[in-house]
Design a protein around this nucleic acid. Structure first.
Lengths: 127, 127
DNA sequence: CTTGACCCTCACATCAATGTGACGGTTGGA
DNA sequence: TCCAACCGTCACATTGATGTGAGGGTCAAG
């Protein structure tokens, strides 16, 4: 599919899909006329990128991390230098930290919401 | 304590602590001479802010979310308009999304690391 | 009183992620 | 043929989180 369809299906602006290519995170094929041609997989991949960016992960890291998130067999072990491995481990740990922080905060927010809800609508009210 | 100590104890640059104040996320007292005076609580609070920023949450949102993360009793329900409540719920949901994305990715990375490790350092288990 | 280690504000610089738009090519249908 | 709806690159603008440094107060110890 072309960039417009992918954009529509993912909700990610064209500009950003081009940016993803520029940073090496998501590189599409090219039609003879020069148009970007994305395969079906790109939908998931783009959304994954979107999610990681939203979670504060820089493109530089996403690029390094993405190859591990492929489904079909792990054939790309070859390219794993010890250095890359170290980076990945560090990244895994910092992701765990983020997850913890986010989880703690989210739970606190949830409790807060519940409390307010309970304090506000203990009685049956009429809309 | 003053900004230097807080900076040292949290690892957060002075510049950023001032920025936190500027954005309304962490507002210290002031000594008569104009110096910022932080209380003990500020340590946790600053780290919390740091964590949420790292997790991609913008200051604008952190500012709105922080009041819910206080420990001592929930006396600040009063200021909770239905609008704020809506924002909080939305934020809670988007945090859950981020947590999911991060967790999925982290687990994938972990599996990848394990696989590479195993392929690289054959263990005396079952050859 | 001087010095050194703090602190202040202000303002500009940087960097990554985005927005926006100019200018032009491709293609399919009225 | 011509237009509309796509697509391309290029390049500048913006925004949020930071770095950096200039110019100047505060204060305790020597």
């Amino acid at each position: 599919m072309r960039i417009g369809s992918l954009s529509e299906r993912t909700g990610i602006p064209r500009r950003m899909l081009r940016y993803y290519e520029e940073t090496g995170m998501l590189i599409p094929d090219r039609s003879p006329n020069g148009y970007r041609e994305y395969d079906e997989q790109s939908v998931d991949r783009a959304l994954q990128i979107r999610g990681l960016l939203d979670a504060g992960m820089p493109t530089r890291v996403i690029k390094q991390v993405l190859p591990c998130l492929k489904q079909p067999g792990i054939i790309h072990i070859l390219g794993a230098t010890p250095e890359t491995l170290g980076i990945l481990e560090h990244e895994r740990d910092s992701m765990s930290d983020r997850i913890e922080t986010l989880t703690r905060s989210r739970d606190a927010i949830s409790r807060y919401i519940d409390t307010v809800r309970r304090a506000r609508a203990p009685e049956p009210q009429e809309a």
